[in-house]
Design a binder for these strands. Structure first.
Lengths: 196, 196
DNA sequence: ACTGGTATTAGTACCAAGTGCTAATAATTC
DNA sequence: GAATTATTAGCACTTGGTACTAATACCAGT
């Protein structure tokens, strides 16, 4: 017993925490104890075995990815959409979206929500942002639920452009607004399939 | 042989792609062949075994996380900065930044790089974006290295504002440009600490 | 010095999900 | 019908473990 089991277990928890890929053997070597001791420690601390740990990390990732694939295209969750007319999305601001220093959401997240909503509302294969003009009206904090509404304001079928206005609110207060000029490939300039 | 090895292998690749957690046994059952056949297929297609696949997914996640923490505050890597004057950052566009459909980078990533550079260049505790005006000049693709330059263009010490111009280029061609109006807490309106 | 109790180590059997290799059977194609 | 390709079977071995039993070590109390 070099210096208490407790201390070792504390370090062990830490070590595994920041590198879940370590085997019992490596741990045993690191702490100068036998593999069995490590196993006992893991049991007491109910830390799962390597392969389970890896699986956990992987499935976390996977869940993220599963969510990220559809959602990555759209920051925030779309809750209502009428193609070529309007769309609504929700975005819950979390710790990772804010500046550590002051807890205020980084602008690009709000922009991302607005921009991806603008892309989504366009009923076309390809929609790209050409220009945008945004105003960050009021700081947004972690915990805030941002509701963003995009409204199609106009089109220019010759230039393949669609103009969209976006407003984001938190508790009915406007926190962000912007105008987006979007480019689209296929015309649909006057929406002959509006009912679909 | 139900219907060609080729077809089975195609499906197998797909199946594993969208669920890396499946075992050979499950696959064998699914395709009505023996486990050995599945193994042979995996070899031919050089698809690693379950545990390796899981490990891959997990370590992807891990790398992302490790990278996401420091970089999250600043999208892209800052390579040069003169506080309150100019700043330069690099952002390598990867698959995850582009639309699957056409391989063009989603606008908000370029905005994010520009915006976080604008925040970074300001020599202050707190810097928030108030307004911005951006133009997506030319599509950016996966593999492109975007070099973004932010230049402080002016200040209004009464209103605590700083005006920044940002230009992003790929191979010396402008792909994005924007103006950012930033709010800062502490004056530093006329930069009495310019040398620091 | 003897007894306890915790801590550590050792050793064995077993498991999952494989690899690697050999060999036997289909099924197809020429 | 022989040659070729595809599929299946079987066995030994690998990793990184679990489960369980048993042997030591160590440290303290009385």
């Amino acid at each position: 017993m070099k210096r208490t089991k407790k201390e070792r277990q504390r370090l062990l928890t830490e070590t595994i925490q920041d590198n879940p890929f370590v085997t019992d053997e490596q741990l045993a070597a690191q702490f100068g104890v036998s593999v069995q001791t490590i196993r006992l420690d893991r049991m007491e601390l109910s830390i799962p075995e390597l392969r389970e740990r890896i699986k956990d990390v992987a499935s976390q990732n996977y869940e993220n990815e599963v969510k990220a694939l559809p959602i990555d295209e759209i920051i925030g969750e779309i809750i209502d959409i009428e193609l070529d007319q309007r769309a609504l999305s929700i975005f819950d601001v979390k710790e990772e979206h804010v500046f550590q220093r002051n807890g205020i959401a980084r602008g690009h997240h709000l922009f991302a929500q607005a921009n991806s909503l603008a892309v989504a509302v366009i009923n076309d294969e390809l929609a790209l942002t050409v220009k945008s003009n945004v105003v960050f009206v009021k700081p947004v904090k972690a915990g805030d639920r941002v509701i963003t509404k995009a409204t199609v304001r106009g089109k220019n079928s010759e230039k393949n452009r669609t103009y969209i206005e976006v407003v984001s609110t938190v508790n009915n207060e406007t926190v962000f607004k912007g105008e987006f000029e979007m480019y689209r490939t296929k015309g649909s300039g006057d929406n002959h399939e509006a009912s679909n």
